[in-house]
Design a protein around this nucleic acid. Structure first.
Length: 470
DNA sequence: CGGTTTCCTAGTATTAGGAAACCGGTGCTATACT
């Protein structure tokens, strides 16, 4: 047995590697930059955990969410790894100090891009040996960096402080452009690239255009009350998540809503209950998703047009991790396109806002917190005109992303093929239950809803076929 | 931009109808104040 497999067995309790894992791990150990694009549930954490045991120094993992960090820390502790810490706002000033003073004692440090700007943290980091840096959910760099969380772009400068450190970037979806942005931001030199197929053969695609909002709501409520979950209903506003749940509860569906304006504790609770099978449906905004451990999600429904093909892929990709037949349904009306444009643009600075930021120092009162923060970032590195041009460009791009997805749903071409083509991938084999455009078998995908309390009973879901789609 | 909700008025019943107001995603951290 070779050394890698030995450690795999000894530390992680597996006897063999999955597709691509071994090659990626070898490259990391050799100190190469690596970018790996592979679906969630394909053993991503192993990729950054295992090499740590064959290399000197500490692994720094940059993670987008506090809950994700907590989760990973717990997972490692369960495996018996004690040298692990999450450095973020959950730690008090004193706790941080004590961690910084003993930083080399940790094998794994999880942290946020924002925290990487902390001087005290950086001084402590520069005194220890860093094995490699991991950018978890690396698509956030281009998804959030430009107009939401500028510290994602600041990683670039931060990395220059550690010029010899190699970087491992992990994500589930990335177009060629996004990969380019990740490479550039993380200063990757000829990285080893591993791209797993993005096709999910057991997810069938259903797209339906309806005339108005009422019809849409009725259709969705009908679907959820007559067919089996577990499922996620994605909506475009927080209010709607709540109103859907209200209706579903009346009809005896075990549902709960989830969005960013809820208390953190409630969010954790809802996610846990869903994962444990105590809830069948979650009605959520795009806040719900990263870090969900549930492999038997059978349905994803969208009642709107998401803001890009990538976010759509991320959202539907949460279904069918157990490899069993599932369905992703999207229902929209014509007005939903305009809504999507508006929502994507509403926090964007106007020309007047940009001028204001360049001419005044304190603009907090007039602009939203996000706008102020993002413009202050660009003010540091660009002239007023350059920022104007940049935001014009970003705006155009955002519009195009939405338009592309909308066009895709309207085209009379296979949805699966179109989605894959967007990531420069060709469809190799068409599953029987493909999509509403090209497949006749799609009506076998759904089964009738049954009143089942325990998760195990739902395992025979796919065996009971029922015609429910049309 | 488009939908939903709220408000107002007419004109006298307790509601119809139209205009105006409102609302619309994603997360980190630091700090002041209970």
């Amino acid at each position: 047995m070779d050394k890698l497999t030995e450690i795999l067995k000894q530390k992680f309790g597996h006897t063999s590697f999955r597709d691509g894992q071994k090659e990626i791990i070898q490259q990391v150990i050799e100190g190469k930059d690596v970018i790996a694009i592979l679906p969630t549930g394909m053993g991503k954490s192993l990729l950054f955990q295992l090499p740590a045991y064959l290399m000197k120094g500490t692994v720094v993992i940059v993670s987008p969410l506090l809950s994700l960090m907590q989760d990973q820390v717990e997972q490692l502790k369960m495996m018996g790894e004690k040298r692990v810490v999450a450095i973020n706002s959950f730690l008090s000033f004193e706790q941080k100090e004590s961690v910084f003073q003993n930083l080399s004692g940790y094998k794994f440090i999880f942290t946020s891009p924002e925290m990487l700007q902390n001087n005290r943290f950086n001084r402590a980091l520069s005194s220890i040996q860093i094995a490699y840096v991991v950018a978890d959910e690396a698509h956030c760099i281009s998804q959030w960096g430009f107009d939401f969380r500028p510290d994602y772009l600041r990683i670039s400068k931060w990395l220059q402080t550690f010029p010899k450190t190699s970087v491992l970037a992990l994500t589930a979806t990335a177009t060629k452009k996004v990969v380019q942005e990740i490479k550039r931001t993380l200063h990757m030199k000829e990285p080893y690239e591993y791209v797993h197929s993005l096709d999910r053969p057991t997810i069938a695609y259903e797209v339906k255009q309806l005339d108005d909002q009422k019809e849409k709501v009725a259709w969705i409520l009908g679907r959820i009350t007559t067919t089996n979950g577990p499922g996620i209903l994605y909506t475009q506003s927080r209010k709607k998540t709540e109103s859907y749940v209200e209706e579903l509860l009346k009809k005896g569906i075990r549902a709960a809503f989830y969005h960013a304006k809820m208390e953190q504790d409630d969010r954790v609770l809802i996610q846990q209950q869903f994962q444990q099978g105590k809830l069948d449906w979650i009605c959520a905004t795009n806040a719900f998703g990263m870090g969900i451990h549930k492999d038997n999600i059978r349905q994803i429904i969208h009642d709107h047009i998401p803001t890009s093909i990538s976010s759509y892929m991320q959202e539907i990709g949460r279904a069918a991790r157990d490899g069993k037949q599932s369905i992703a349904s999207l229902v929209y009306t014509n007005s939903d396109v305009e809504q999507a444009f508006y929502v994507a643009m509403q926090d964007f600075p106007e020309e007047a806002d940009i001028k204001l930021v360049y001419q005044t120092d304190d603009v907090q009162i007039q602009l939203s917190e996000t706008t102020t923060r993002i413009l202050n970032y660009w003010k540091e590195i660009l002239s007023e005109q350059e920022t104007m041009d940049l935001f014009y460009e970003i705006k155009q791009k955002k519009r195009m992303e939405i338009q592309k997805l909308f066009t895709l749903f309207q085209n009379e071409w296979c949805i699966r093929e179109q989605l894959l083509n967007n990531f420069d991938e060709q469809l190799k084999e068409r599953p029987i239950n493909c999509c509403t455009v090209c497949s006749y078998g799609i009506h076998h995908v759904l089964t009738e809803r049954t009143e089942q309390k325990e998760e195990e009973k739902q395992l025979n879901w796919k065996n009971r076929l029922n015609e429910l789609l049309y």
